[in-house]
Computed example of a mutant assay.
Amino acid sequence: MSFFQSLAAVLTPAGLIWTLLIIGIATFLHELAHYALARWQGVAVKSFSVGMGPVVFRREWRGTEWRLSLLPIGGYVEIDGMAPEPGEDGVARPPQRGFARLPAWGKIAVLLAGPLMNLLLAIGLMTMTFTAQGVPAPDRARIESVVADSAAQRLGLRAGDVITAIDGRDIPQTVTVQGRPAAGWESVRDTLTRAGTHVFTVDRAGQQVDLTFEWTPTVNGERQLLGIRYGPDVMPATLPAAFVRSWQVTAQAVPQVVQSFAGLFSRFLTLDLSRDENVSGPIGTAEIVSQAARVSPWALVQVATLLNLSLAFFNLMPIPGLDGGRILLVLVGSLRGRPLSFAQEQAINLAGFAFVMLLMVFVVVRDVSRFF
Results as ranks from 00 to 15, higher is better:
368 V>F: 07
236 P>A: 05
79 I>N: 11
234 V>A: 04
144 E>I: 09
241 A>N: 05
349 N>Y: 13
1 M>F: 08
299 A>K: 00
11 L>E: 03
78 E>T: 15
99 F>P: 01
277 E>K: 12
177 V>C: 10
260 S>W: 00
134 G>V: 06
225 L>C: 02
102 L>N: 08
142 R>C: 07
134 G>N: 12
50 V>T: 08
39 R>M: 08
307 L>W: 02
287 E>L: 09
49 S>P: 05
34 H>V: 13
218 T>Y: 03
291 Q>T: 15
41 Q>H: 14
102 L>Y: 14
159 A>K: 11
363 V>L: 09
146 V>Q: 04
23 I>H: 06
231 G>E: 02
85 E>S: 10
265 F>Q: 07
79 I>K: 05
272 D>N: 02
289 V>G: 00
289 V>C: 06
114 G>L: 04
287 E>N: 03
99 F>V: 04
176 T>P: 00
16 L>G: 02
186 E>H: 11
132 A>W: 01
53 G>N: 03
195 A>W: 03
55 V>T: 15
69 S>V: 08
69 S>N: 10
87 G>S: 12
134 G>L: 03
207 Q>N: 04
72 P>A: 05
100 A>K: 02
251 A>M: 02
3 F>D: 10
4 F>A: 14
142 R>H: 11
120 L>M: 14
214 E>T: 14
213 F>S: 03
125 L>S: 00
216 T>I: 08
97 R>T: 15
186 E>N: 05
165 A>L: 11
297 P>H: 04
243 F>Y: 00
361 V>P: 10
175 V>S: 11
196 G>I: 09
223 R>Y: 10
148 A>V: 07
288 I>K: 02
297 P>C: 01
107 K>S: 01
117 M>L: 13
168 G>M: 14
64 T>A: 08
32 L>Y: 11
358 L>P: 07
168 G>T: 08
152 A>W: 01
305 T>F: 11
327 I>S: 00
372 F>H: 15
112 L>I: 09
179 G>P: 08
91 V>W: 07
112 L>Q: 00
166 I>T: 15
258 V>F: 03
85 E>R: 02
57 F>V: 14
292 A>E: 00
134 G>T: 03
39 R>W: 05
311 L>M: 13
246 S>M: 12
359 L>M: 12
364 V>K: 11
91 V>G: 03
82 M>C: 12
277 E>S: 15
348 I>L: 09
74 G>K: 04
74 G>W: 00
89 D>L: 06
288 I>V: 14
232 P>T: 02
169 R>T: 14
269 L>K: 12
204 R>M: 08
76 Y>I: 13
198 H>V: 07
318 P>R: 15
71 L>F: 13
250 T>V: 11
326 R>N: 11
166 I>A: 14
195 A>Y: 09
342 F>I: 13
318 P>M: 15
150 S>C: 15
317 M>T: 09
209 V>S: 03
226 L>V: 07
271 L>D: 10
127 T>I: 04
15 G>V: 09
143 I>V: 13
280 S>M: 08
117 M>V: 05
13 P>F: 15
13 P>C: 07
231 G>K: 00
213 F>P: 04
146 V>F: 01
311 L>H: 04
245 R>K: 11
